[in-house]
């Protein structure tokens, strides 16, 4: 398959089941909601070392938030429910509770509630106040700038993590420009996050390493500087490869995000140095979710 001069490899991305949650952070203005959201989703690019993958889903205007203030929707993904709950609580406690004027609300309903502010309330040292409003429990925790208002719980849902595609370009600036265009379109799709810095990862990994202590190492088949000395997957004109990783609530959400992302890359096309789109997988043996690039773009 070739779109606008860009070859779409006959391969697939392989993704895994994860647990996910969503929280809504509001503040006096969008600036401070965003600051809090960025802090909460910081150091959360990969479950390999961060404990979770997190990202900003989108900015919410005041008509979309529970307290009528500007807000930001964030999503957190982890391999299991316990890990997710721990990450949510520590991040909420250190990054949202501490952030000036912030409030924190559930962003998703499910039959598996996990603590959001339920335990953060103890920061109030007995001065915290519970309010049940519209059937939901909230906590008002006295803090130095006034009150931190938080919903007691949010929902935990089954999700999918690790959808991806690779952008192969003739130069590093062209690869990055294509990825930026893709991310801009993908951020319009609900229920997905791209957890890496700016949504783009330049250090895709393979399973295993020559060093016993490491479970993953650089994906040498896609490293352009190793073309001549390893079993490369790159043609001679490829000088840079970047990857976009997608976590989503459902396979369909990731499908949509990949489609608009790949389309945005292909719109730049061969004329802008984009040669191929590929994807990372483990031979289909590890992850139950397969995203076949040519099917997605058909």
């Amino acid at each position: 398959m070739i779109i606008n001069g860009v070859t779409i490899d006959k391969t697939f991305a392989e993704a895994f089941p994860m647990k996910a949650t969503r929280a809504i952070i509001t503040a006096q203005n969008e600036k401070w909601a965003m600051i809090s959201a960025q802090a909460m989703t910081g150091f959360a690019t990969s479950v390999i070392a961060c404990g979770c993958e997190a990202g900003i889903e989108r900015v919410l205007d005041s008509s979309e938030t529970p307290d009528g203030r500007p807000g930001v929707s964030v999503m957190i993904f982890a391999m299991g429910g316990k890990g997710l709950a721990k990450q949510l609580e520590t991040r909420a406690g250190q990054c949202v509770l501490t952030s000036p004027t912030s409030a924190l609300f559930s962003g998703i309903d499910s039959d598996k509630p996990i603590p959001l502010g339920k335990n953060l309330r103890y920061f109030g040292d007995g001065f915290q106040i519970s309010k049940v409003i519209g059937g939901k429990r909230y906590w008002r925790v006295p803090v130095m700038d006034g009150e931190f208002l938080t919903e007691a719980t949010t929902g935990q849902v089954d999700a999918v993590g690790g959808g991806n595609f690779l952008v192969l370009a003739e130069s590093q600036p062209q690869a990055l420009a294509a990825c930026e265009a893709a991310i801009e379109e993908m951020r319009k799709i609900p229920n997905v996050i791209m957890p890496f810095p700016g949504g783009v990862v330049r250090s895709g990994s393979k399973v295993g390493s020559k060093y016993k202590a490491l479970g993953a190492s650089t994906n040498d088949a896609f490293c352009p500087t190793l073309k001549g000395i390893t079993k490369t997957d790159l043609s001679p004109e490829i000088e840079s490869v970047m990857e976009i990783v997608i976590d989503g609530l459902t396979k369909e959400d990731i499908d949509k995000a990949m489609r608009v992302g790949i389309q945005a890359v292909c719109d730049l096309g061969a004329a802008n140095g984009i040669k191929r789109i590929s994807a990372g997988n483990y031979g289909g043996k590890l992850g139950p979710f397969h995203f076949h690039l040519q099917e997605i773009m058909a």
Binding site: D67, G68, A103, I133, G134, G146, E147, L149
Partner: peptide
């Protein structure tokens, strides 16, 4: 005197 964030939510309910 204070501005309390939960009050608009209470009234909205």
């Amino acid at each position: 005197s204070h501005t309390l964030a939960f009050l608009p939510m209470l009234f909205a309910s």
